Amino acid sequence: MSQSASQNVSSSAYLPEHAQGALNAYNKLDVDAKLALLYLVYKKMGDSVTPAAPAATEPELAPLLMDDFYRLSHDQQLDVMREIVNGADTDYSHAYGALKENNQLMVWYAWAQAMGQSVIGMPGNYQAEQSVTAALGQIEGLDFEDQISLLREIASGMGYSNIQAIPTQAETGKTASL
């Protein structure tokens, strides 16, 4: 049985409690508002929100996302972004879901850097909804480490993966054999 990436997760064991509100605010947004928020995060925070560990990223692992994606029409690019945010069962969403968090952040960073050029940009007349500006304000209020942790959490909740979590010993009642 296939599973999509964990969508609409309201809390994370990896985020400090004060960052949970920002994650909850993000998870309440619709797909286009989530994309707008990601765009605004990268626009406002610029180069401070780079892939968290550039040496730990491997762009060659994502040729579909880092090469083929740029050849799509802007409408197709928007569709792909929506599919990834929604965890749809598509080739692009699978390619994204197979990446580690740092590489997922690198994909969004690369796309943000190319927005308005080789990647679809925001409409010129776009006005952010109050829920988007409120979520952005919560993210801006976090310290840098918490911002990166939050963005990793958001990035890892997107895409499609049919990889199942390994049941814990508590869930199976069996001990590991050597």
Rank of each mutant, 00 (worst) to 15 (best):
L29Q: 02
A135M: 03
S73D: 15
V119I: 11
A36Q: 09
R152V: 12
A36D: 11
G141L: 05
K44R: 15
L99G: 01
Q138K: 14
V41N: 03
D32W: 00
L72N: 15
L29V: 00
P63T: 12
A128N: 05
G121C: 12
D75E: 15
Q77S: 09
Q130R: 04
L64H: 06
G87A: 12
V119T: 07
L38T: 01
Y70M: 08
S149Q: 14
G46A: 15
A110K: 03
M115D: 02
M115T: 09
A114H: 04
A110S: 14
V85L: 07
H94K: 14
Q77M: 13
G97P: 03
E153S: 00
N27D: 13
L142D: 08
P54T: 13
V80R: 03
R71P: 02
L150W: 06
D79M: 14
A155K: 04
T57Q: 04
N125G: 09
A135K: 05
A128G: 02
D67G: 07
L64G: 02
N103M: 08
G141Y: 01
A98K: 06
D91I: 09
Y26M: 09
A52V: 10
Q113P: 08
Y96H: 09
S131I: 11
G46E: 12
A98D: 12
G116N: 14
V31R: 03
E60V: 10
Y70P: 08
Y26N: 09
S48Q: 13
L150P: 00
A134Y: 10
L35C: 12
L105V: 09
A95M: 04
M45E: 14
A88F: 12
V107D: 04
D47Q: 13
L78C: 11
N27P: 07
G141V: 04
S131W: 07
A53D: 15
Y92P: 03
N27F: 05
N24G: 15
A135Q: 00
Y39C: 06
Q113S: 13
F69A: 07
G141S: 08
L64I: 06
Y42M: 04
S93E: 03
G87C: 02
P123G: 12
A88R: 11
L65W: 06
D75A: 15
D75S: 15
L65A: 07
A56Y: 10
L105H: 06
D143I: 11
G116Y: 10
A55G: 01
T90V: 06
R82K: 09
R71I: 11
M45A: 14
Y92H: 09
A135V: 06
L23D: 11
M66D: 11
Q104K: 03
Q127W: 00
L151Q: 00
D143T: 14
D30A: 05
V41T: 08
P59E: 00
L38E: 00
Q117C: 07
D30T: 11
D91R: 05
A110Q: 11
L35S: 04
E153M: 02
K44F: 14
M66I: 06
G116V: 13
M106W: 01
A135W: 05
A88S: 13
I84C: 05
E101H: 09
Q127Y: 00
L35Q: 05
Q138V: 08
Q127C: 01
A98M: 10
L65S: 08
A135H: 02
V49M: 12
E58H: 15
V132W: 00
Y42Q: 08
A53Y: 13
Q113Y: 13
Q77P: 08
V41C: 05
Y26S: 05
G137P: 12
D146L: 07
A56K: 12
W111G: 05
M115G: 03
R82T: 08
E101R: 10
I148Q: 04
